[in-house]
Amino acid sequence: MKKILEVSNLDVKLKERTLISRLSFEINSGTLTCITGENGVGKTTMVKTLLKNFKNNNHVNFHIKRNQVQYVPQLRNIDDDYPLMIKDFIGLGLQNKLLPWLSKKEKLSIEQVMNETNLAHLARTPLGKASGGEQQRVFLAQALVSNPKLLILDESTASMDKDAKIELLKLVKNITEKTDTAVIFITHDPLLVQKFGDYDLEIKNQEGILKSVKGVNN
């Protein structure tokens, strides 16, 4: 287990208003940390603050490079007539090379990630024609294709039904355990925290408390 991120005494602010004060926690590789709390306590703002202070802050200390972090945003607003096929949308996540075309190795990693996220049969479907749950898997696949060390999921399950949520989290858990990736999962759903979380960072009354979710996994 390696340290991915250390946060110490960080104040999270939105404009001038302090949302969370003196926040401290650690993220280690291969673990899934849920961030929970009511609407508007500053979960998303906190994650954005972390990314904004990637380099120049003594309160936030990342042990990985910026391009090893993948953030899966909450909303993407894909129109019905969004044209790009799923395979190519996933390929957009490959940003570490300058070549305009994808190398053989990169094509293979797209194929592999599509197999892992059960998207192989939809490879040539335009993203706009995929269902909501399928689109969430595509967003996950796009984030995973560059082999991140830290994956941040912002309420990725908010619009899904119960079975689909569990299915998605199972995928996340499987893949990240294999690759020793750390996951930060912003969620509202206590069931998912109990079932899949290793740690729960609960934000309440401008404070964040990190707890271990015990006796659930294994």
């Binding site: 990314l51 972090v69 993948q70 953030y71 899966v72 945003p73 909303l75 993407r76 607003n77 790009l84 949308f89 957009l92 996540g93 490959l94 940003q95 090379k97 300058l98 070549l99 305009p100 967003f139 796009q142 984030a143």
Partner: peptide
Amino acid sequence: TLIYRKLKYNSFDSVGASFN
């Protein structure tokens, strides 16, 4: 050609690119 990968990410997934 030189900026192709970044341009396609920024154009076809502007929300994702804005974070990553």
